[in-house]
Design a protein around this nucleic acid. Structure first.
Lengths: 254, 254
DNA sequence: TCCCGATTCTCATCCAATGGGAGTCGTGTC
DNA sequence: GACACGACTCCCATTGGATGAGAATCGGGA
């Protein structure tokens, strides 16, 4: 490929490139030079600089004092202002705060997104226990309590996809057997909640309940993360109260 | 313009177009058909469909059951995971919850963004008063208490820009005179907080304090919105406690 | 049944995007 | 103070992917 070419000989569309550029940013790498971005996104230096400059112009990226690049707030604004799911987050916040203040452990809200549980919010008091979850982070459906709820009440087609795919173990207590998972899902539907002990981290137990919108579909999971051997009853009571509060805010008349 | 052309004869780059497409979404219009998007973004129908399909493929937009288009969660994820400012939001949440639970009025966190105050978070108990602020919403610097704080501690160049531009009135109590604003800013710096009575909505009063990061720069404003004639002392005490808590989380040793 | 709008597909056209290269700037090293 | 290295900017010949008119298809409502 030593020839002079134009219009992305690499065969990727402009959209692809923009996305690759944005994806070079991670939770641990929030500022980069334009050249770094280019290297990581697999772009020639001059192209990288041009594209980054364009994105800065558009407000999707920002240049700080030292001329380095950060993700622009414009991106977050666009996404947050106009997103259906994030309006749900807003509706759920008061209930989440209540649960958090009573249980005093991590309180989370997750939705189904591309066959994973995506966490929209996490409230954590001081002194709350261990928790790998992060806002805008993801966890696999078969391992997290939130994921189990979203999976148990999800489309049959989703369940098939997950049950026929490999079930990677995060700990030695993660369910990795399809038929065991199938039984677990039946249990979740029967009880109306999911308890996941040690399946994400050995030291903690997740407890989650489904949240329905006005159409009656399960659209989210409300959960708390307790120390591994804590009793779940008190948490369940608060989760159900919180769940009902959110459902009312969403217009569900159960 | 009846001739056959290629590569956007309209003279706009691909980035521009993508941004225009994303900007057709608003808080009140979160789902649209591809054709609607095209009309609003000023794109020919076939181009609109192609671009929308590309963005759906990339995950920046999503198609719902009825084939209509929504903003994709991917966009929010990218922005939230990798943004400096949103990590600050996360660091501020516990303090904000505390302030909210004590004052029981809207508690907000704002940053400076493109010469406006951009609200990163708003906690609102049940029964809190009126409030025009929205998460991911903006307010002018000269009118809101958060804006006054950000402006008072901002770069001189920012202050010049604002002070020499027109100062639109949101209510009859908004400061619209440059020299009055200059005096107000001096007062804010002297007192270490801003009180804005009726300048956004006549029925409410904003109270805001600055928040500094580890470099000592003011990077955010923590504020509450009280009923117009409420006493501000109790709120100020909580705001200062909250501010200090956030600054410690950010590594500021004041 | 017809109609109208949304959507998909095709394809000739051609210009905006491309990326090598050369040069500048700033910083850190010996 | 010279040198090395990397980030960045500018330039420009090249061209293939993006473009949008148009035709066809789909789908819902009257």
């Amino acid at each position: 490929m030593l020839d002079l070419v134009a219009n992305s000989p690499s065969g990727d569309s402009v959209t692809d490139r923009l996305l690759r550029v944005l994806e070079t940013f991670t939770p641990t790498r929030t500022v980069q030079t334009a050249a770094e971005i280019g290297r990581r996104a697999g772009l020639p230096p001059s192209s990288a600089h041009r594209i980054v400059a364009e994105l800065v112009e558009a407000g999707l990226l920002e240049r700080d004092d030292e001329r380095r690049i950060r993700i622009g707030m414009r991106l977050w604004e666009l996404a947050t202002r106009s997103s259906h799911a994030l309006r749900m987050r807003q509706a759920a916040m008061p209930a989440m705060e209540r649960v958090q203040s009573r249980i005093r452990e991590h309180t989370q809200l997750a939705i189904l997104e591309q066959d994973e549980a995506l966490f929209l919010e996490r409230l954590s008091g001081p002194g709350a226990g261990s928790n790998v979850t992060r806002v805008a982070g993801r966890l696999p459906l078969h391992a997290s309590s939130s994921g189990l709820v979203l999976l148990a009440y999800g489309e049959p087609e989703l369940q098939n996809r997950i049950l026929t795919a490999p079930l990677p173990a995060l700990t030695r207590e993660t369910i990795t057997d399809a038929s065991a998972l199938r039984r677990k899902l039946a249990e979740v539907r029967l009880l109306g909640h999911a308890v996941a002990r040690g399946s994400i981290e050995l030291v903690s137990t997740g407890v989650a309940v489904p949240v329905r919108d006005e159409t009656g579909r399960v659209v989210a999971a409300l959960s708390v993360v307790l120390p591994r051997d804590a009793a779940v009853e008190a948490a369940l009571i608060e989760l159900h109260a919180g769940k009902r509060e959110i459902e009312q805010a969403l217009g569900y008349r159960g």
